[in-house]
Simulated scan of single mutants.
Amino acid sequence: MSRLAVVCGGSRGIGGAVALLLAERGCRVVVLSRDQDSARAAMEALPGGDHLSLSCDVSKEQEVQRSFETIQKTCGSVSYLVNAAGINRDSLLLRTPPDLMVSMLHTNLLGSMLTCRAALRSMLRPPGGAIVNIGSVVGLKGNAGQSVYSASKSGLQGFTRSLAKEVASRNVRVNLLLP
């Protein structure tokens, strides 16, 4: 039986490339995207069969819970989770409206927290699995015009390190990539 991989933000960009690689390596892939049509198109382009696509805005707790309940019922336990969903709207802090700040923080940081929590429910029974969060070098170095984005990615780094320590004894690996 192939291992199940959930790729948040799997319809394009880094997430799309990761979904393709996982499918090529024999995983059953669940593509999550805010846009159902994009998720379906990305899923249909994957080699092999029996993949799944779901519409899910990772910044919304109810949608994440519903999506992972569907995944558990239809596909079984999650072996791999990749958090590649993210948004960036470059803007100087003085020109960034609060609703855009909240949107970036909710998608880039809270979204990964929510999906990790949802996926861990199945990864811990039986123990084992891997989570990869996609961060950014900007979270380490900063960049003019990206203070909010940088803050969200810095937070993701701290979250990933702490979560790795929380679940290491249960044979779940948690890592952060900084493209």
Rank of each mutant, 00 (worst) to 15 (best):
G10E: 00
S136D: 12
A151K: 09
T96D: 07
L109M: 06
V58I: 06
D99E: 15
L22G: 05
I71S: 00
Y149D: 02
L177W: 13
A45R: 15
A119M: 08
G145D: 02
Q72D: 11
A130V: 13
S112P: 05
L93N: 10
I134E: 04
K165C: 13
S136A: 07
N133D: 07
G86C: 05
G15C: 07
G135P: 00
T70Q: 13
R125Q: 14
N171Q: 15
V132P: 04
A85L: 05
R66D: 14
A41C: 08
E61A: 15
P126Q: 10
S11Y: 04
T115A: 02
K165H: 10
A17D: 01
L124Q: 12
A23M: 08
Q146A: 09
S77W: 05
V58L: 05
G9A: 06
T107A: 04
G128K: 04
S122H: 07
Y80K: 09
Y149P: 01
A5K: 02
M123G: 09
G142I: 04
F159A: 01
N133F: 01
S154A: 15
L114E: 00
S147I: 08
A41N: 13
G158I: 06
Q72L: 13
T107H: 10
P98N: 10
R3F: 09
R161W: 11
G13W: 00
A23C: 10
C8W: 00
G26W: 14
E69F: 07
S91E: 12
F68W: 03
R25L: 12
G16T: 06
A144C: 12
M43G: 07
D37Y: 08
L120G: 09
Y80D: 06
S55Y: 05
N88F: 04
A164Q: 13
D35P: 13
L110C: 06
G111F: 00
N88E: 10
R25S: 14
R170N: 12
P127V: 05
N83H: 01
V102W: 11
P47C: 03
S77Y: 05
L20G: 05
K153Q: 03
L140F: 12
S77N: 12
A42M: 11
Y149V: 07
Q157M: 14
A164M: 11
G86S: 03
R170G: 12
P127L: 07
V102E: 14
G10D: 03
D90P: 15
V7P: 01
A41Y: 01
R66Q: 14
V7F: 00
R3H: 07
T96M: 13
C8Y: 00
S162W: 08
M101I: 15
D99M: 09
S150C: 13
Q146N: 10
P179H: 05
M113C: 11
V78D: 03
V137W: 10
V138Y: 03
V174E: 07
M43F: 10
R173K: 14
G86Q: 03
E61P: 07
R3K: 15
L32F: 02
I71P: 00
P179R: 05
V6A: 03
N88Q: 06
E24A: 12
S136T: 03
N175Q: 12
T96P: 01
L177N: 11
F159K: 00
V6F: 03
P47F: 08
R40E: 15
Q157N: 09
H51R: 01
L81F: 03
C27E: 13
K60L: 13
R170P: 04
G158E: 10
M104K: 02
V148G: 02
E63T: 08
A85V: 02
